[in-house]
Design a protein around this nucleic acid. Sequence first.
DNA 1: ACCATTTGCATAGCCAGCAATGCAATGTTA
DNA 2: TAACATTGCATTGCTGGCTATGCAAATGGT
Lengths: 160, 160
Amino acid sequence: MQMVRRVMGFIRDQSAGYLANHMARLFARELQARIKPLGLSIGTFPALLVLWEGDGLTQRELIERLDIEQPTMANTLARMERDGLVVRRKDAADGRVQRIWLTAAARALEAAATAAADEVNDRALAVLSPGERASFVDAMCRIIAALQTGVPDDAAGRSP
Amino acid sequence: MQMVRRVMGFIRDQSAGYLANHMARLFARELQARIKPLGLSIGTFPALLVLWEGDGLTQRELIERLDIEQPTMANTLARMERDGLVVRRKDAADGRVQRIWLTAAARALEAAATAAADEVNDRALAVLSPGERASFVDAMCRIIAALQTGVPDDAAGRSP
DNA sequence: ACCATTTGCATAGCCAGCAATGCAATGTTA
DNA sequence: TAACATTGCATTGCTGGCTATGCAAATGGT
């Protein structure tokens, strides 16, 4: 029968949403510092992870794997093309789609970049025991799944 | 004796940093949907939480409490002033500092806004048991502390 | 065959975060 | 007290996230 509403004020330092934002910013700062020497920035990282597994994907396939909105991905790909990480080529069969191909330069960065990400994760998770790490990652996965589902068209004032 | 380096590739869906970023984006999407009807956006939220506890703070005091860089806060405060949430007044004793004061409009939003944030947190954490919730929040706090400490000037190539 | 719909991507414009820099007000020190 | 250092904030310019919108290519229904 827990007291959901506290009498006085919202406790910022115990709010999951606030902590999630803060933690994500710190992860980003840390990764950015480590991949900047490689000429990479954090926004390109998720796209590269997918493309290193296999390129020639369409923009739509990328955004489905990454849960990123389409204009964000279009913008990111434009920067990646500008920076010589990918090239976009028209699909022969469908005139609408642009298939994304890694450049040799991008392929060459895989080992160093993933090593940098491993280092950041290791540094962050070092404060947890191995068991805690597993349940922490599992909890994030479950929360992500929970926040992705539902809210088909609700939750934002349905009647004027 | 765990294998820290996997033989083939980086597993995105088990990377703490990737999951933290994804989770934070989902929290933000959800909160944004709920506070948009109030005329608020997520960037102002942390500042408001601090100011609702007591205003008249300087910009520097705000950024220390929130771990936000100074130009980000200056920009956020400019939007908040534009939107009638705060006013900035020069400190009498020190000609450099601007003290931040909430408007009546901003004060009036506290209950509705914190209720919205509570709803988001409750929805996200509903997939965890009470015990899991506590350890999850604790883990985030510990990781935040770990990523904040150290790295005084290191980790990004110390010699040219 | 035609028109409407759907699909894939690009663009515009905003918010939020950052580093780098500028500058005025205050402190400090020789 | 004059020169220097520090502090507090603003500005510039970038990345990265979003919504809203536009548009061309493909698809479907009739």
